[in-house]
Simulated scan of single mutants.
Amino acid sequence: MAKTALTKYQKLECSGLWRESVQSQRREVVANLGMTSLILSDPKCEVALAHWSLPAVKRLNPGEMPALFAPDASDGETLEIDDNEMITALQTVHSAISAARPHPGRLRNSFFGIIAFGVLAIGALWLPDALEKHTASFLPRSTRQAIGQEALADLTRLTGQPCSAKSGLAALEKLSERLFGPDSGVKIIILRTGLARAQSLPGRMIVLPESLLAEQDGPEAAAGFALVARISAEMTDPMIPLLDHAGISATFRLLTTGTLPETAIAGYAETLIAAPLNLPADSILLSRFEMVGLATSPYANAHDPSGETTADLIEGDPFGNVIPPALLPDGDWVSLQDICSQ
């Protein structure tokens, strides 16, 4: 019954007024009903402010409007909402969970048997892949960026700090805007050593090895690798393999509290680098490269100099017979090549 109620109202959200404690002022939040928790977020920056476990949520003023909800054992923490659909959803879920609880008077063994069955049922429904996907789908951009920065910090154990020459960073920002648009939020990062190919990190970060700049005559190959990495990230959320590395316990903590344990990402760099390459289909690449005005041949030749695995990208290059628009002015390309000089 609980599963049916949760499924019916999955991803329901509304605005509300949240008070963190008796002494706190009320503030506007967005309440998002997930499968296991009610997530309260700042509507301006999408930062998660609180996670309430659904079984703990109770209504303080039945029959009155606006409805006032609170978690068990709260220190004056409340949520005031007047959205009828959300109110009905919370009450339906609470009733379903209450009905599933054992009634007083049953044997202790039966009580523990129900708990064990519930744990096994949750494990069968959620763990591990579904829990990871569900958690990733609810993370606000700010949390993704913070986790991505932690993953980058772990990666720099092997690669050294990101290249940071000022003029090179400016050129890199221009390249990102040229490929993904000025409001995409995609950040390209260049690393000196330890990286053989482009990688995507949570928070729309793409890391590229310096060799893609040093060994090329122009920015087209590096741009191609960055574009392919972004397309791959759109198809497979880079948060998923990171949560798989962190483990079930850490993933559940992220879902319920909005944070990962301090050690959850440790060692992820080795896992990331060793992961098998999973490229999008050539037809997808040809379409996207043409869309952004980028030739596929420079990327294809750099990816496989033999041309055996990239023949379709070379033969089907949308700019094989014409010159595509310039990615960067010559001065910016020189600056980009020198990005690791400091």
Results as ranks from 00 to 15, higher is better:
S211M: 09
L179S: 01
T143S: 15
G218Q: 05
L201Y: 08
V207L: 02
L208V: 09
L155P: 10
E220L: 02
E210K: 05
G185D: 01
L191N: 03
G194W: 10
E220Q: 14
G194F: 07
R144M: 13
R141H: 12
R230P: 00
I189Q: 06
A146Y: 07
A170E: 14
L175G: 11
K174G: 09
A214M: 11
P162I: 06
E220M: 08
A229M: 08
R197Q: 07
K174L: 11
E177N: 14
L208P: 12
I206G: 00
R204Y: 06
G148N: 06
V207W: 03
R144S: 13
G185K: 02
L172G: 11
I189V: 15
R192L: 08
P140F: 14
M235Y: 00
L227Y: 02
A223D: 07
A171E: 11
S176D: 09
G181Y: 03
S211C: 00
I189G: 06
P162W: 03
L212G: 06
R178N: 03
L175K: 11
I189N: 07
M205H: 06
D217C: 01
T143I: 07
C163G: 12
L179M: 02
I190M: 12
K174P: 00
V228I: 14
V186N: 05
A223G: 09
L152H: 07
L212Q: 11
T156Q: 15
P219E: 08
S232A: 15
E177D: 15
P182N: 05
A171Y: 11
L175W: 11
C163K: 10
F225D: 00
R204C: 01
C163P: 15
G160I: 00
I231S: 00
T156R: 12
L169T: 12
I206S: 02
L195C: 04
A214S: 15
S176P: 04
A165L: 12
L191Q: 09
L227P: 02
I206C: 01
A226W: 03
V186M: 04
G194H: 08
A165E: 15
G160S: 10
R197L: 03
R230F: 10
F180V: 05
L212M: 13
S232E: 14
G181D: 07
K174I: 01
C163W: 11
V186Y: 10
I190A: 02
